[in-house]
């Protein structure tokens, strides 16, 4: 492997992660190039929205950052930790500090909300405790606090299967918060929620960013949400960054530029 050209030392404990990508290419085994030589710097504590058409590479970008998808070539650093080529214990330690939120919630439906949220402690708690399910009082307290932060604490002992979509996504957010993350990645977190719930969940993500100072990167396909909840907007098309700038000032012309077509009612939440 080439010597690491690390620009930043590992982020000190408790501080949010920055992301540094240099010429990152992701090619799937079937030959599809999802990310095409992307260079990108995200500062610690930023709230970034990523938009783009379906298939433009939004999910690939997010999943590359926590190495769920491997980098084919290029350099990727998260919080000063080299991600491309990282494996095993080292990779798990970094992932333990990156919360991830999925479009489909990805909860274990047959167990309790609390057990789902405690998954956020997997990489922090001693191995034997996680295997026995005997988490410390401190770990459980973190889980309860996270549930409280997204206002779903009363559901702690309910089965995850019995939650509504909005509640399930809040549990997923609580799971991410229980990691005490320094970066939160959200892949279309509100795509399967109704408009009021979507706003509530986006509000939760914004508070995570503003109150806790955590870096947040969110994939969205609805332009008004991207504009309203992000401070920075990144536009992807065919695996390349075609826009990178201030979110609030991005007008419809910018989105038409990103999408390569005119903007319609399907691209916004509020008609």
């Amino acid at each position: 492997m080439a010597p690491a050209t690390t620009a930043v030392p590992p982020a000190p404990p408790g501080t949010p992660f920055a992301i540094r990508m240099r010429e990152v290419t992701v090619r799937y085994p079937n030959g599809v190039v999802a990310l095409d030589r992307i260079s990108l710097d995200i500062e610690a504590g930023e709230m970034v929205s990523v938009v783009g058409l379906s298939g433009s590479g939004k999910s690939s970008l997010i999943r590359t950052i926590n190495a769920l998808v491997p980098v084919t070539s290029g350099e990727l650093e998260v919080g000063g930790h080299r991600i491309d080529g990282a494996r095993g214990r080292e990779l798990r330690a970094v992932r333990g500090q990156i919360g991830m939120i999925f479009q489909g919630f990805n909860l274990a439906k047959r167990t309790t909300v609390l057990n789902n949220v405690l998954v956020g402690r997997l990489s922090h708690a001693p191995w034997w405790r996680t295997m026995l399910g005997a988490y410390t009082a401190a770990d459980r307290r973190l889980a309860f606090e996270a549930l409280d932060r997204v206002e779903i604490l009363p559901k702690a002992y309910q089965r995850a299967a019995d939650l509504s979509g909005g509640q399930a996504q809040r549990v997923a957010i609580a799971r991410a918060l229980t990691q005490e993350p320094r970066l939160v990645l959200a892949d279309e977190p509100v795509a399967s929620l109704d408009p009021p719930t979507a706003h509530a969940v986006m509000g939760d993500l914004r508070r995570i960013n503003q109150d806790l100072g955590i870096t947040v990167l969110t994939n969205l396909h609805l332009l008004d949400l991207a504009r309203r909840y992000g401070t920075r907007l990144i536009g992807l098309r065919a695996g390349r960054i075609v826009y990178d700038g201030d979110a609030a000032s991005a007008d419809d012309a910018v989105f038409e530029e990103i999408y390569g077509r005119s903007i319609g009612a399907q691209d916004v939440l509020e008609k």
């Binding site: 926590n66 769920l68 990779l91 798990r92 330690a93 970094v94 992932r95 333990g96 500090q97 990156i98 919360g99 991830m100 999925f102 489909g104 990805n106 909860l107 274990a108 439906k109 047959r110 167990t111 057990n115 405690l118 998954v119 956020g120 997997l122 990489s123 191995w127 996680t130 295997m131 399910g133 997923a172 799971r175 991410a176 990691q179």
Partner: peptide, 26 residues
């Protein structure tokens, strides 16, 4: 998908299977 959530949280394979796969196959 739920197992992927365990990987994303930095769990080992054994931890993920214990915490997430076990309740689902029970």
């Amino acid at each position: 998908g739920l197992l992927e959530a365990g990987s994303a949280a930095g769990g080992t394979r054994a931890q993920i299977n214990r915490a997430l796969a076990l309740p689902e196959v029970a």
